[in-house]
Design a protein around this nucleic acid. Structure first.
Lengths: 201, 201
DNA sequence: CTGATAAGATAGTAATTAATTACTATCTAT
DNA sequence: ATAGATAGTAATTAATTACTATCTTATCAG
């Protein structure tokens, strides 16, 4: 086994994060060991702890990576679209795109939320979803104002269902063991959601 | 520590299953150890293996319990309701009721589906969801036939979203750390779903 | 009342886990 | 060129895991 290049610390940390994201796409995130992470990046297990004080810190870094990328992605997708409903659709599709590129992501998020204790990673997921919700609420309000969305719409319920819809797609793809399925099903499922929130024609 | 009553084997097995369901409501199901199960039912850890050949068999029994109870519950809820849409709503609410009584259930199901290997418990979850889907498809067809549902409705997508909607509710309640929330939010979220599938008025 | 049997306790095992250690290789700035 | 800092290795640690062998006690039919 050849010795890996000595990467600078911050680069090694980002390689670690990407390894965890990749592994989470292949197996139950809660069963990812530090040994498995190290193996995936051609490193010894102990070397990981040169860059992270403990395993919990690895998960925290991973969730920071996720939060940053996902929010940036949905923001850029919605940017410049004047119709709120179209913006929501763009957000939905870009989120689905992100998830189908990184199928481990929703599984990690769900796994973190399941923890009883409040770990740094869990708190990061909570603020991510909170920020996500804020963006949705904003769009929903705008949609009501311009008459695209039903004035009687329940904002909180609509936001909950938006995220739940993606969660349902993930679940269905895990059931079928087929990630690519998400992309195919997403437009069909969003069509129903859209019908549920828009103003009657 | 008092010695527990010597229960007959099948009764001890069902107590075990109920303990696991209860524990799954309090912590990450994948972190439930045999020691924790035994402690919860006032038994020594080794004694569990008098009644189950291994841990996997415990999870299988748990998922059998879930499948049996959940299907029975939604079936009895829908029974005798002639309107397909009303039957779907009754199914939804009874499912939500089941979940709020046993918050560990959706978490266990999601956890099982996340596994890479095909365990007996995972297969049990798969057939459960398959049977669930069949019931939904039947109702959706009936709903189209009687004109309650939009004729253009995508059956598969509608079934996916039905289950995803519940998953979204579970996630939201885990986020808030408040199980009771599910019951409160369920009617509001289902209202949007219903709007998405029913025929335009 | 008795003894066979089922149920549980006790005390282990081997394997796996995250984390730590002492040591070595490599890079970088003077 | 080389000293000091950074990065990585290999071996080991204590704790935890599922699981098991052996002994003890409760239960109940005859």
């Amino acid at each position: 086994m050849s010795r890996p290049k000595n990467l600078p610390a911050d680069e090694r940390r980002s390689v670690t994060v990407e390894s965890v994201v990749a592994l989470a796409g292949l197996q139950n995130p809660s069963e990812i060991t530090t040994a498995a992470i190290a193996k995936h990046m051609n490193l010894t297990q102990g070397a990981l702890f040169r860059h992270f004080p403990n395993k919990e810190a690895i998960w925290q870094a991973v969730m920071e990576w996720v939060a940053e990328r996902l929010l940036a992605r949905i923001d850029s997708a919605a940017k410049g679209i004047e119709s709120p409903l179209a913006a929501m659709e763009a957000m939905f599709m870009s989120h689905v795109g992100f998830v189908s590129e990184h199928p481990g992501v929703p599984r990690m998020m769900f796994g973190e939320l399941q923890r009883a204790e409040s770990t740094p990673a869990k708190r990061m997921v909570q603020t991510l979803i909170q920020r996500y919700g804020e963006r949705l609420q904003l769009l929903i309000e705008k949609g009501k104002a311009c008459g695209e969305l039903a004035a009687s719409l329940d904002n909180d319920a609509a936001a909950t269902l938006f995220i739940g819809t993606i969660q349902g797609l993930v679940m269905q793809s895990m059931l079928a063991g087929d990630i690519a399925r998400i992309r195919r099903d997403a437009p069909r499922v969003f069509a129903i959601y859209q019908r549920g929130i828009r103003r009657e024609l």
